[in-house]
């Protein structure tokens, strides 16, 4: 187990190194540069040259990459060109909202998805099943901004239960969490359903029923426990991407999370902030997946890491 963990962490480092190269190259490819934004609409040639020198943008990109990497190794993500605040500080300011949003959504998506998926599997080919399949498809394919506006219109504008937009504690995150959870719940429900259907056909299920075990315990203990592995992978992936911030949902609900910070930074070509957020998100994503892999052993003793 320890050796496995060590190997995984080592390969994680390799992945992240690859990520830094990729981020850096992609950022170079975006047309437009931060100096144009920083100096306003009518800069002189001298001002442009001076600003390029000040930001080190007159260096070749390979030099800038190594300076970025060097700082990164010391835990420094750089400083925003636009606000003059360190990227760590920017992330620290914005991440709490994103983290809460990700947690609430993934919990909601998991609970809804697994319960509904299991019911559908048990009641295969009945109207309940069809309804679940229909709604999970709807949840997956309905665009986030549409769900968001729909929820705002009913629960905030008409019924005044929740605020329309802005962050003001848990209450203000309910609608955004539901918005984000619906898509995930749809996927989790479909995955749970198909995985359960495979398991239900297994002979040990019939055996369990034959020896007289109560139906619910057969479904939960014998069924779900065996069906859960692919669902967990999906939950891990979903949670990992939620942690990177949800651009559309944050924009519609006017929440100041990582997603809105990222989109602002891209619009202003704030290179250190873009690089910092993408790197931060990549680290979280990789760690979440590692954690999920380790959790497999809890649910399925057959899985052992050597």
């Amino acid at each position: 187990m320890h050796r496995y963990l060590f190997r995984r962490l080592l390969s994680l480092l390799g992945t992240l190194l690859g990520v830094t190269i990729l981020i850096f190259l992609l950022v170079q490819l975006i047309p437009g540069d931060p100096v144009q934004y920083l100096l306003g609409d009518y800069p002189t040639e001298e001002a442009i040259a001076a600003m390029n020198a000040q930001l080190g943008l007159d260096q070749p990109w390979i030099m800038r990459y190594f300076s970025f990497l060097g700082k990164l190794l010391q835990g420094d993500l750089g400083t925003s060109y636009i606000t003059g605040i360190t990227v760590w500080q920017e992330i620290e300011d914005r991440f709490p909202i994103t983290l809460q949003l990700a947690l609430y959504s993934i919990i909601l998506a998991t609970v809804i998805g697994i319960v509904v998926g299991m019911i559908a599997a048990v009641k295969q080919n009945t109207w309940v099943d069809r309804l679940v399949v229909f709604f999970s498809l709807l949840g997956i394919s309905a665009p986030g901004f549409w769900i968001a506006l729909f929820l705002i219109w009913i629960f905030a504008y008409q019924l005044s239960i929740f605020p329309i937009s802005g962050y003001d504690g848990f209450y203000s995150l309910v609608l955004p969490s539901i918005t984000l959870a619906l898509g995930g719940a749809g996927m989790i429900a479909r995955m749970t359903r198909s995985s359960m259907l495979d398991v239900i056909k297994q002979e040990y299920m019939r055996t369990a029923q034959a020896k007289g075990a109560p139906r619910t315990s057969v479904i939960l203990m014998h069924g779900l426990q065996n069906a859960i592995i692919p669902v967990m992978t999906l939950i891990g992936l979903e949670f990992g991407s939620l942690l990177a911030g949800a651009i559309v949902t944050e924009t519609v609900f006017s929440l100041q999370g990582l997603g809105s910070l990222a989109i602002e930074a891209i619009g202003k070509r704030d290179l250190p902030t873009i690089q910092g957020i993408v790197f931060f998100a990549a680290v979280l994503f990789a760690l979440t997946n590692l954690l999920v892999d380790l959790l497999y052993t809890l649910f399925d003793p057959r899985i052992k890491y050597e």
């Binding site: 901004f145 705002i152 504008y157 329309i164 937009s165 519609v252 609900f253 006017s254």
Partner: peptide, 18 residues
Amino acid sequence: FRFLKDDDTRILEFKKGT
């Protein structure tokens, strides 16, 4: 001064009277 980027959200907030 509130910064609401999405037009639909801004309009709904205004219609709500906030």
